[in-house]
């Protein structure tokens, strides 16, 4: 197998806070091949956004990063600012939850698109304009020519996200990181945007990371899913394998706790009791142990490693994985 496009190696991120050091990302290893989609799922505060920011090298100034982020053969952690700037926006693109994070409110949409294009590609103004119109059309913006003269505030939230996607796609990135790209949008618009991302991803043979709190968003759209809890990846597998059999109790509990469309009204939902641990007070054992119904002595003493058993590409961090052999742990 050829080298992956992205390889996240033992990445940890610490943030100083008044309450002590907060370990936002706790030694994560992940990799992604060209043209593939990885879903990173987790609740707020689990470290998924910090991890994506570590990849993009867009961490807060006071954050401390260790580990390596190898993208297309280079370690981004060691890259100088100028090289990074040129990489981001071209080979490495990002779409945020709030499209206004990447849009400039005082510039027209046309200016923003054309600036990005001309900064990274050698195109004259006319060609950049033509490309901008094509991109807006590709992301489903009606009357793209007229849009070029408009400002972001003149567009709806869904339109703004489409424009942010158009900008992200403008230089044919090798990797697109979409951080909760549809969380702020309505469900009918969300479906449109997810379809759009999937279509462009296939067409451009681009690798994509979708970060979300919604298992439903990744189920039909990611090749592989990594579940994060308290800064760590606790389970990782090809999507179909993961949904067929979840080994890590947190993943299973999370899926079970979501009301489904076929849940009958007034059924008691299998809720997860308690809440995630305080990230400034890391636990000695498994972070999920206090909420886990399978937890036993060992779980409170040591951290289970992320590893595979019967299926090498299905990894989980658990001493007592679910249903290895009728409830008997490994």
């Amino acid at each position: 197998m050829s080298a992956p496009l992205l390889s996240i190696e033992h990445v940890a991120v610490e943030l100083p806070t008044p309450r002590g050091n907060l370990r936002a990302v706790d030694h994560v290893d992940l990799s992604l091949a060209a043209g593939r989609t990885l879903g990173i799922v987790g609740e707020s505060g689990c470290g998924k956004t910090m991890l994506s920011r570590a990849v993009l090298q867009l961490l807060p100034k006071k954050a401390k990063l260790t580990g390596r982020v190898i993208f297309d053969g280079e370690d981004l952690v060691r890259l100088d600012a100028e090289r990074l700037r040129r990489l981001r926006g071209r080979d490495l693109a990002v779409v945020f939850q709030d499209p206004m994070t990447s849009l400039n409110p005082v510039l027209t949409i046309g200016t923003q698109l054309m600036e990005t294009i001309q900064e990274h590609l050698e195109l004259d103004a006319a060609a950049a304009r033509k490309r901008s119109i094509e991109l807006l059309a590709a992301v489903g913006i009606p009357a793209p020519e007229q849009r070029l003269a408009q400002y972001p505030h003149q567009c709806s939230g869904g339109m703004r996200q489409r424009i942010a996607i158009a900008i992200a796609l403008s230089c044919e990135p090798k990797l697109l990181i979409a951080d909760e790209p549809t969380t702020a949008l309505d469900v009918t618009i969300q479906a449109q945007i997810l379809d759009l991302l999937a279509r462009e991803q296939r067409r451009r043979h681009m690798a994509m990371i979708i970060i979300t709190h919604d298992l439903g968003v990744v189920a039909g759209r990611a090749d592989e899913v990594a579940v994060m809890y308290a800064g760590r990846v606790v389970e990782r597998a090809p999507t179909s394998a993961l949904f067929k059999r979840m080994h890590m109790p947190y993943t299973e509990a999370l899926l079970a706790a979501i009301p489904k469309l076929d849940t009958a009204p007034h059924t008691l939902l299998p809720a997860i009791s308690g809440r995630p641990p305080d990230p400034t007070r890391p636990l000695r054992g498994c972070s999920f142990a206090p909420r886990c119904r399978y937890a036993a002595g060992r779980c409170h003493e040591a951290k289970p490693e992320l590893k595979g058993a019967e299926m090498p590409e299905h990894l989980y961090a658990c001493f007592y994985p679910i249903r290895m052999a009728e409830g008997i742990g490994a």
Partner: peptide, 12 residues
């Protein structure tokens, strides 16, 4: 029909 279903066998 727009709701993402947490089941990979249900194609969006």
């Amino acid at each position: 029909r727009a709701i993402p279903v947490p089941d990979p066998d249900v194609r969006p």
